[in-house]
């Protein structure tokens, strides 16, 4: 393999290097790449929304299928823009009320089911040291997040166990985070060495 002759790979590689140059110190190359990213992601988002929402969910049903019911959600959606005009801004509360109402209605039962599933998962389906650790961990952590009681005496001791569990979980999460950040860097290095420079396969 040899160095890439693809123009876009060169662009991608140079932008990657521009972003990494920040590690040495802040500089105009980094700033350029950063602003480019912000701009492009907004532009990309708008084009996707245009095609997949306005065209397929509003324009097509309205023009081709003559489905005029679409006008109702369209009107509700447009009311959101009333926030930009002070004297009618209260109108934006109507669509927000719809979204909040429907969202709560959908999420409350589902959240409960989710909670039930997690409680179910804590139930020791077989007796072993693993399920004991889980039960102790869950209960002591719950005690730590108990605010109506002073953390003294027995409650204090249990919450100490709880915070220990929390810290162990944080340690695991921290380790995983390091792993993730390294992986991201590896992905870029792989791109630079293989797709761009062609040093490795």
């Amino acid at each position: 393999m040899a160095i890439s002759t693809n123009f876009w790979i060169w662009i991608a590689a140079l932008l990657t290097l521009a972003i990494y140059s920040f590690l040495y110190k802040d500089n105009p190359f980094y700033k350029f790449a950063e602003y480019l990213l912000v701009g492009i992601s907004i532009g990309y988002g708008i084009s996707i929304y245009w095609h997949n929402t306005i065209i397929t969910k509003v324009y097509n049903p309205l023009v081709y299928d003559k489905n005029f019911l679409v006008l109702i959600p369209l009107l509700l959606g447009l009311l959101m823009f009333s926030r930009f005009f002070k004297n009618v801004s209260y109108l934006s509360r109507i669509p927000i009320a719809f979204v909040v109402g429907a969202g709560t209605g959908l999420s409350v039962p589902s959240s409960f089911e989710f909670l039930f599933k997690q409680i179910y998962a804590t139930m020791p389906l077989k007796l072993d040291i693993g399920s004991l650790i889980i039960v102790v961990g869950v209960i002591s952590t719950l005690v730590y997040f108990f605010f109506s009681l002073e953390h003294k005496g027995f409650v204090g001791k249990v919450s100490k166990v709880g915070i220990t569990f929390i810290m162990v979980a944080f340690g695991a999460a921290f380790g995983y985070t390091i792993m993730a950040r390294v992986s991201l860097f590896i992905g870029r290095i792989q791109f630079l060495l293989s797709d761009w420079l062609g040093i490795i396969k």
Binding site: A169, A172, Y176, M179, A180, S183
Partner: peptide
Amino acid sequence: TTAVSAAEYYS
């Protein structure tokens, strides 16, 4: 999932 979220999703 990413390694960052892996610990969270073990449950």
